[in-house]
């Protein structure tokens, strides 16, 4: 699985692991301690396509926040692109998040007053990339998701599928080590869902590491393997074979 198509150079880690969780525990104090994650260990290799499934309350969101460097574990280690998230301060974690992780949300989460192009370019704004370079890169990605002609539209002038494609383009703009998608097709109808998932497969085929959190089986089945969570624990890992996603990119 150690493909190297992403163009990301690992910081210290040459093992080809994009994300590594070791015995991760996340406890919230809500009156009494609640273990959102209770000793999860998981490795995600570079260039892989992983789906994370589980009913609500199983710890999907917590796992996503940890992998996305939005949160730190109570116990155990989370290593993203070679960096131990727990040892980083807020500023370093933000930088790591900005450069290493691309987010795609169920509700798209586009900036309402920025155009599609500006939304795609937004992550680079915080990495001090010049305006001209940003726009060029954003235009290129919009072209790849098939929205070059919608570059100057505001999000509310775009359809749900188009918005999610803008979000995907934004997630990819900094050339991240992994793209983290939380229910990416939850707000889409079946047809647009297929289009967006095809795009995911396409970028995965290009070498991007994909992690998709979902509770829908047919979405999860697009991945190479499905990680099942239940009550904060790793229930089982279902391997669907690597051929799965790459082939479907063309269908």
């Amino acid at each position: 699985m150690a493909t190297s198509g992403t163009g990301n150079e690992p910081d210290t880690d040459d093992t080809g692991t994009a994300v590594s969780l070791q015995n991760v525990r996340k406890t919230y104090q809500l009156g009494e301690p609640v273990h959102a994650l209770d000793g999860v260990s998981l490795d995600i290799t570079r260039g892989s396509y992983t789906a994370i499934m589980g009913p609500s309350g199983s710890g999907k969101s917590t796992l996503m926040n940890l992998v996305g460097c939005l949160d730190t574990p109570t116990e155990g280690t989370v290593i993203v692109d070679g960096a131990d998230v727990a040892t980083l301060d807020d500023r370093e974690r933000t930088t790591l998040r900005g450069t290493t992780v691309g987010f795609v949300f169920q509700t798209f989460n586009l900036m309402p007053r920025l155009t599609a192009l500006e939304n795609v370019a937004l992550p680079q704004l915080f990495q001090n990339v010049g305006r001209g370079e940003r726009r060029e890169r954003a235009r290129e990605l919009l072209e790849r998701v098939g929205l070059a002609d919608r570059a100057d539209h505001l999000p509310n002038e775009l359809s749900g599928g188009q918005r999610q494609r803008v979000a995907l383009a934004r997630a990819l703009v900094n050339d991240p080590a992994l793209v983290l998608a939380d229910e990416p097709s939850g707000n889409l109808d079946t047809e647009t869902e297929a289009d967006v998932l095809d795009l995911f497969a396409e970028f995965h085929g290009g070498g991007t590491t994909m992690i998709v959190v979902t509770h829908e089986r047919h979405v999860a089945e697009r991945a190479e393997r499905i990680v099942h969570l239940l009550d904060g624990k790793l229930e089982r890992i279902e391997d669907l074979g690597s051929a799965n996603a790459s082939d479907e990119a063309d269908t």
């Binding site: 500023r91 933000t94 930088t95 989460n109 937004l122 915080f126 934004r170 900094n174």
Partner: peptide
């Protein structure tokens, strides 16, 4: 939240 998620510092 969006800006912070995509890498905006405090």
């Amino acid at each position: 939240g969006i800006m912070k998620a995509v890498g905006a510092q405090n």
